[in-house]
Design a protein around this nucleic acid. Structure first.
Length: 185
DNA sequence: TAGGCCATCTGGTCCT
DNA sequence: AGGACCAGATGGCCTA
């Protein structure tokens, strides 16, 4: 059972940037690049790997270039951690606004995204039905619905109040989708 | 024990 | 130039 919430995990001792990651990076296709970029990437990688291979032996003196690059790496790691934490907060905020079966079990990220998508679809369908095929407000200057969507930070901060919880009435279809999702279909 | 999920590290690329 | 973003790698925790 996944009923109990996991304790926050502290990743094993923060890795020493000196301890080279070794063969961590196989050739991955460079995102968004042509053959030239691929070539450049290969040579950069070769240089970097060579540098790592021989770099492990020298001891960085205080204030050395190596030491400052280690420092930069650590700062970069910290920023990346913060970024991921923010992302996870956003996921949590999303979990809290989409209704789901078995509230005792925390939704995984992929479940959260999939259910959110289905939920949006379901709500959209409901709105369309209620407004006889037209989105309410589309005749007006700026649809309120869209205005609401223009504030992503609000959701990210978990600022949605209880008053904005989804209405209970129109979720029959969505809950069916949840069930089929849970069944893995 | 295998498989799923996750946090973290890392190096590359993109953007300001 | 420096920070944000991205994706691969790695290893820990948990459940079936």
């Amino acid at each position: 059972m996944k009923t109990k919430s996991r304790p926050p995990r502290r990743r094993v001792p923060p890795q020493d940037p000196e301890a080279t990651p070794g063969e961590r990076t196989p050739d991955r296709p460079p995102p968004g690049s042509g053959p030239d970029a691929a070539k450049a990437l290969r040579s950069r990688r070769a240089r970097a790997q060579g540098a790592r291979a021989e770099g492990g032996r020298r001891r960085p003196g205080p204030g050395s270039r190596r030491e400052s690059s280690v420092q930069r790496r650590l700062e970069s790691n910290e920023r990346e951690r913060q970024r991921m934490h923010k992302l996870n907060n956003a996921f949590q905020a999303l979990r809290e606004v989409i209704p789901h079966v078995r509230a005792d079990k925390k939704l995984s990220k992929i479940e959260t995204l999939t259910l959110a998508k289905n939920y949006i679809k379901s709500l959209t369908a409901t709105i369309l039905t209620m407004s006889s095929g037209r989105l309410p407000g589309l005749d007006g200057p700026v649809p309120k619905l869209y205005q609401h969507y223009q504030q992503p930070q609000q959701a990210a901060r978990g600022a949605l109040g209880a008053s904005e919880a989804p209405p209970e009435g129109h979720l029959q279809k969505f809950s069916t989708q949840i069930h089929s999702f849970r069944e893995g279909s």
